[in-house]
C-alpha cells in the first residue's frame, strides 16, 4: 500500500521532480484560484450576489468570526493566512471523495510544510504586533528558567500540528484501503462520507490551533488565547 503520494514521481520540471503531492496540490490551488477568479470578476457590492460570492462571503465571514473569537483581535491581518490554511486543507480533504484523487494533506511533507509555515508565522505576527523585546520576553515568562521549555514547546507543538493532520488524513486513507480489501462494496463509501466530515473538522482544528498559537504570540499575556485542554 502506498502510504504517501510523495513517492509517485509523475514528471520532472527541469531538475525538480513533480510528484503526486505537488500535482494534487496544484489541482486544489487551481480550483481555489478559479473560484476566487469567478468571485472577483463578478464581485458585487450591492444587489444580488452570485452563488460563488455568497459561498465565499459565508466562508470568509465564518473564518473571520472564528479568528475574532479566538484572538479577541480584528481578523484583518490573520485572515489570509488562517483562511488559506482552512480552505486549502478542507478542499484537499473534501476532494478525497473523488476517485483517484490523493489528498496532499495525506503527505507528511505537506503537513510539515504547513506546520513550518505556522512555526514561522507565529513569531512574525508576534514581532509585528509586540515588537522584538515584547515578543522575546514571552519566552522568559513566567521565569527565565522556563525559556528552554518555551522554545521546546514551540517546536513540539509545530511537530504535533504536522503529525496530527497527517495522521488523521493518512489514517482515513489507510482505513479505506483496509476496508476495500475486506468489504469492497459498501464500507468504503461510508468511510469516504465520514471522511468528508473528519476532513473539514481537521481543517478547522488545524486553522484554529494555528490561530491560537498566533494569538498567544500576539497577546501581551502569553497563553491567554490557549483553549482549555490544549
Amino acid at each position: 500500500m502506498q502510504m504517501t503520494p510523495d513517492g509517485t514521481i509523475l514528471f520532472h520540471l527541469g531538475p525538480l521532480p513533480v510528484n503526486a503531492t505537488i500535482l494534487y496540490t496544484w489541482i486544489v490551488m487551481g480550483v481555489l484560484i478559479l473560484s476566487a477568479l469567478l468571485v472577483r470578476l463578478r464581485l458585487s457590492d450591492t444587489g444580488e450576489l452570485t452563488r460563488w460570492q455568497n459561498l465565499w462571503e459565508a466562508v470568509v465571514e465564518t473564518i473571520a468570526g472564528q479568528i475574532r473569537e479566538v484572538s479577541g483581535q480584528e481578523p484583518g491581518p490573520y485572515l489570509p493566512f488562517i483562511g488559506t490554511l482552512f480552505v486549502f486543507i478542507a478542499l484537499s480533504n473534501i476532494l478525497a471523495v473523488v476517485p483517484g484523487f490523493q489528498p496532499p494533506t495525506g503527505s507528511l511533507s505537506t503537513t510539515t510544510a504547513l506546520a513550518l509555515c505556522v512555526l514561522i508565522a507565529v513569531p512574525l505576527f508576534g514581532l509585528a504586533r509586540r515588537g522584538v523585546g515584547g515578543y522575546l520576553r514571552s519566552y522568559i515568562q513566567p521565569s527565565p528558567l522556563m525559556a528552554p521549555f518555551n522554545v521546546m514547546g514551540e517546536l513540539t507543538r509545530t511537530l504535533a500540528l504536522a503529525i496530527r493532520l497527517y495522521g488523521n488524513v493518512m489514517s482515513g486513507t489507510v482505513i479505506a484501503g483496509i476496508l476495500i480489501s475486506i468489504a469492497p462494496f459498501f464500507f468504503p463509501v461510508l468511510m469516504q462520507l465520514l471522511g468528508l466530515l473528519t476532513g473539514v473538522i481537521q481543517a478547522y482544528i488545524f486553522a484554529i490551533l494555528a490561530m491560537v498559537y498566533i494569538a498567544s504570540a500576539t497577546r501581551d499575556r502569553p497563553g491567554a488565547g490557549m483553549p482549555k485542554g490544549e
Partner: peptide, 19 residues
C-alpha cells in the same frame, strides 16, 4: 512515514503563493 524536503519546500512555496 518519511519527509521529502524538496516536496516540503515546494509545498511551502505553493502555500505562500496560494496565500
Amino acid at each position: 512515514m518519511q519527509i521529502d524536503w524538496i516536496t516540503v519546500a515546494a509545498q511551502i512555496v505553493n502555500f505562500l503563493a496560494l496565500v
